[in-house]
Design a binder for these strands. Sequence first.
DNA 1: TGCGTTATTGTAAACGTTTACAATCGTGCT
DNA 2: AGCACGATTGTAAACGTTTACAATAACGCA
Lengths: 341, 341
Amino acid sequence: MPNVSIKEVARLADVSIATVSRSINNPEQVTEKTRLKVQDAIAKTGYSPNKLAQNFRRGRTNMVMVVLPSVGDPFFTAVMKGIRAAARNKGYSVVIEETQLNTLTADEIGAMLVSNQTDGIILLASVSPFGTEISSAKSHRQLPIVIGCETISPELADFPSVHIDNIAAAKEATNYLISQGHKRIAMIYGQESSLLTKDRELGYRAAMKQAKLPIADGWVVEGELTIAGARKATRNLMSHNDRPTAIFCANDEMAIGCLHEVKSAGLSVPEDVSVIGFDDIRYAEVTDPPLTTISQPAEEIGERVMYRLCRRIDAGNGTSSAPEIVPHKLVIRQSVAKPAN
Amino acid sequence: MPNVSIKEVARLADVSIATVSRSINNPEQVTEKTRLKVQDAIAKTGYSPNKLAQNFRRGRTNMVMVVLPSVGDPFFTAVMKGIRAAARNKGYSVVIEETQLNTLTADEIGAMLVSNQTDGIILLASVSPFGTEISSAKSHRQLPIVIGCETISPELADFPSVHIDNIAAAKEATNYLISQGHKRIAMIYGQESSLLTKDRELGYRAAMKQAKLPIADGWVVEGELTIAGARKATRNLMSHNDRPTAIFCANDEMAIGCLHEVKSAGLSVPEDVSVIGFDDIRYAEVTDPPLTTISQPAEEIGERVMYRLCRRIDAGNGTSSAPEIVPHKLVIRQSVAKPAN
DNA sequence: TGCGTTATTGTAAACGTTTACAATCGTGCT
DNA sequence: AGCACGATTGTAAACGTTTACAATAACGCA
């Protein structure tokens, strides 16, 4: 059953294979009568076109690859939702690669695109060796690659991107803490290697500087972008001899770990320590207390990035590669209050 | 640069295309000298085999499809982690489809497999029209499909599967509540359509019956498998005129919503109401209070299911299709206590 | 040296589509 | 009726691999 080809259909409908192909793909080029004959034959044989042959012939797979740090992060999950919606709309399937575990991926990714296993790539994570891999390709500017969320590393600056203004958003978060009267504000950033995290740190530092507030040694700590990492980081902050009254976490996942660890230390949020997050994942409103955070339009980013990629795929490099900045928003819940002292 | 084919390499290395192909895929069939010549030519031209042509010719894509309810659920995320690890190990890429939004998917899935866009399918969700779609195929037993987590619907009973014993696990959760002295125990199940949820409900009912405990009208409510759905369900339970002292949620996502809603109602967990979940997602230990729940070996399920699929793909239908049951475990944290009254 | 055997290479077909081009058909007009 | 023209169909090539089979080269042995 699976082995019926277009020939079989042609034989049964008593037409040429070209006509069968046309009735399927360009029905307007074919007479009503033959279209029906062909339709009949298709139904009788149970024929369905061999996608592998089609892909080969057309040089297209209608698949795009999304590279992200971890499928586990609810923020990326939300972005993916937007990507999938757009992809579905445009007839694409999505294959996902994580950078998390192995460093191999970077090469594989390059290989995949070059050997056009997929029609395009969305980078939601900065995969560093990738920069060189790609830029070594002659015409790398034309490769259908679009960058989302991540701030762009220099090697990738030529590619279109969609993201919020991370620096401004981090500044806004910090300023909110300051406006509440906090002076001793710590930050848990993600990973040394993450550019995105770097920008948020920059925003935090800028806001502190502008408010002429000092940042004590040991107030800016790495959280590894995980719950466990943030707990460890928070533990250090809680035992700091100049304990901060507020903590800015570079994402909500870490903020959740932070919240929990503050409470484990016998302190309460926000009475003793205020916590502010970043991303506004769906768990942010059910933490205890509900998390004040910066909200990104994750789904919208996903959609835009996918549509952007489609344009690149269709129109080649003719399309603009200017970064597209989407708006963020401070969402005030209950994890931040005025400091006690 | 991307358009160099095997011919170009052959010309440069002064051999036939067959020899080039062999030096790449079966180097042992080729003399050391020519292998080097070819290697050289490949390097010079920057050739890399056209995957689309390979796929076409070999009738294989080295891609598998995973169908799940929602990529957002941390439980499935964990399963995916296992799948990816195994897939990477076996040289497969993974394309993900969600059943969530559209009902179209079911047909597309069938189509995808039939037109071998992917080499196999892992079903982590019961996609109901799919049963008929697939079973209408002549030799459907041989299709490389493996089922994970979900209990198997009758139409799909022929396919191999990997999952915990959902009925026994739900019974265990309920019995734990009973052992703590609870008598008025409610349940929030997922979706009417989900078989998985059905089994958990069965286990709950069995345990209640065995303990000769009554289940009042309105104690078994739908939670839609989401935080919001569970909140709504909990609201109903909290205003029930025979308010339960314990709630069994069919997954942790709903348990999180449930916890939050109980607290919103001015009650406390576990003093006034005990809550027990299912899955042990990574957020379960940072809820307030930390969630008592049934833990599934999610990653292991993912790995096993993927390896099982590989065997199916390689060995055809020769392989066993007996369900593989993996162990679950009750994880006791702090969301369950003895009832007050 | 010549023969048989094996290792290495080349030739050409095949996979299932799509599509340029040529051939045919049908229609309306004179 | 004959012609021109457009609509429809058929023929055959092409896409880039892999691989069965044939051809050749290399080698050992008598």
